[in-house]
């Protein structure tokens, strides 16, 4: 039987990347609209970027249009999440990766502070307990 390497293989140049879907500009208008709403009625908006047909080139164009702002954070919970404020305050780019580091969700949030950054009372409570436990574990020597 022939070895795999004996098969003649021709490599042709890959087809050019699919053209732009023209979805970037309407999206920017939507963001502008959401910002007005945030200012006027303190209403937040979330846009699911994975549900909109966009090519890689489109996504890159969008990110370039939004640019980088003052905040860039990483959350480590069930894999990492990257949360960036863009050049436009109040417009956030949120990417959730799983433990295997593949992208699971990508959103634009137009809000003052993304909900996910705030500490939750239940987590605060659990943390408080841990801290208290640690203190009480350290203290016995002194109180004795």
């Amino acid at each position: 039987m022939a070895e795999l390497s004996e098969f003649p293989i021709e490599v042709h140049e890959a087809a050019s990347a699919p053209a732009s879907t023209q979805n970037v500009v309407p999206l920017l208008h939507e963001i502008r609209h959401a910002l007005t709403k945030l200012l006027q009625s303190d209403e937040s908006t979330t846009i699911d970027l994975l549900s909109i047909p966009m090519t890689d080139a489109d996504l890159q164009a969008l990110e370039e249009a939004l640019g980088n702002g003052e905040i860039d954070t990483t959350i480590t919970a069930l894999g990492t999440s990257r949360i960036r404020e863009t050049r436009y305050p109040g417009v956030w780019l949120i990417e959730h990766y799983n433990v295997a580091d593949s992208l699971m969700a990508k959103f634009i949030e137009v809000t003052r502070l993304p909900e996910i950054l705030k500490a939750d009372p239940r987590d605060i409570d659990a943390g408080l307990q841990r801290l208290s436990e640690q203190l009480s574990n350290n203290e016995p020597d002194e109180t004795d």
């Binding site: 699911d48 069930l78 999440s81 959730h96 699971m104 969700a105 996910i116």
Partner: peptide, 25 residues
């Protein structure tokens, strides 16, 4: 929570689930 998954992890899970279910954010 018993498995040590924080609220942030849970919210992330919910966001990804909604996106997976093709639901509006």
């Amino acid at each position: 929570r018993r498995q040590g998954i924080s609220r942030r992890g849970f919210l992330k899970f919910c966001a990804a689930t909604a996106s997976m279910m093709a639901m509006p954010p």
